[in-house]
Write a protein that binds this DNA or RNA. Structure first.
Lengths: 220, 220
DNA sequence: TGCAGAATGTGACATATCTCATATTATTTT
DNA sequence: AAAATAATATGAGATATGTCACATTCTGCA
């Protein structure tokens, strides 16, 4: 299947054309990002609006000391660059592909003004942001307050690729709001329980069902 | 000063007319809510959009068992009922005045369709929601991870009226995501330290500067 | 090559927070 | 008024998490 067909398929699947009161087709293209590639560059003006339709991406900023501050994960479907579009003064956070990402891309240099004047599109964004607020508050509500054990199980499942968890501990510790020390304690505990195994290229996920059971205990 | 003048003054202060591409004046009125009064009724269709310009309000839902689930505080300026306007299917959360609240009210039965078709207004709401998302994530980022001591100090300052803190402990404990037991521990500790004093009608704020010092330690 | 700074690991101990048990008042319901 | 229910309180002991001190890689860079 060539790119044109793939784009068509994805626009269909997510009813992307229904977001606009005019034909968006001429402005839309397919963008593919391999794992680890930058989708949005930090602090830089955004010229494309992306709609993430396959894959998972990370939202982050970089601190002065070079440390990465992980904010959140984008799941499908999500707009990337929406904040910058509607609020050009805001600081652009970085977005990096975690798995391979497929995005429907809008060239804002050509249709930026038009979409910003389109009530149908603006209502779509409003609804999207509104639901994100509810989702966020639900999410942080649920995550917060549970012991690390449960949140880490969920995080390992979220971030592991091909059965291997290999995120930098400093980043994970910050994201999950626990001390580096405690993170290692719980990782060691998971190893002892046979949930994961400490290999040379990260931690091997030995018992995904066990991890899922922990995750369930938290969410349900 | 009569209501009309007050409304005029508040519209000026917050540049309320600039949110719209048409003259909103004929649809706007002033709404005043005394402390404890309901501003938005839970689960009920919203017929007015409020813009909170003075006072502080609580966003909540009520669980089946009657317990109140406090979600957040609205500070000025904030839209109330914006979610329901842009996403009519969403469940309406309750909003209750904490202090006396002044709101600019829009009668949606008369101008609902018109504002939803106004790109200028929709961009305003988008920007507002976008900033709220950033603010929320910043807020929950900051609050989370700090020991209760600091968060409670901040919460007491936020909710105390006339130097008296008198929120129900169950509600506070849930909102701050700690056990009831631990909340009482820390309150007792505050009493011992002379920060607050346990009177018959709630806790008297004895040393607001001491509480502020704790709050500062967390935020900055 | 070698050094400086990260990232990784581990131990000992302190603190924050939770769970459970149990009493005592308020408040609501019958 | 009695009974049921929720809110307030307090203690004891368990668990989760943090702080500090330190050793060991790894990695970019002079």
């Amino acid at each position: 299947m060539d790119e044109k067909q793939k784009l068509e398929q994805l626009m269909e699947r997510y009813h992307f054309r229904d977001f606009f009161s005019f034909d968006i087709t001429p402005y839309a293209s397919l963008a593919i990002f391999e794992p680890g590639k930058l989708i949005l560059r930090e602090g830089q003006r955004v010229t494309k609006l992306y709609y993430l339709v396959e894959g998972r991406a990370k939202l982050f900023t970089t601190l002065k000391n070079g440390r990465v501050n992980l904010f959140n994960f984008y799941e499908v479907p999500s707009f990337l660059g929406d904040m910058e579009l509607i609020d050009p003064d805001s600081y652009t956070k970085g977005v990096r592909a975690h798995t391979r990402c497929y995005c429907i891309a809008l060239d804002l240099t050509r249709c930026g003004e038009r979409v910003l004047a389109d009530p149908k599109f603006l209502r779509t964004i409003c609804r999207y942001l509104g639901r994100k607020i509810n989702g966020n508050s639900l999410n942080s509500t649920q995550n917060q307050g549970y012991p690390l054990k449960y949140r880490l199980a969920s995080y390992i499942l979220l971030t592991s690729l091909n059965g291997v968890y290999n995120e930098p501990h400093t980043e994970t510790a910050e994201y999950l709001r626990v001390s580096y020390r405690h993170l290692l304690y719980v990782l060691a505990q998971f190893c002892r329980q046979g949930l994961i195994e400490h290999g040379p290229n990260g931690y091997l996920v030995r018992d995904p069902d066990g991890l899922r059971a922990l995750e369930e205990e938290m969410r349900g």
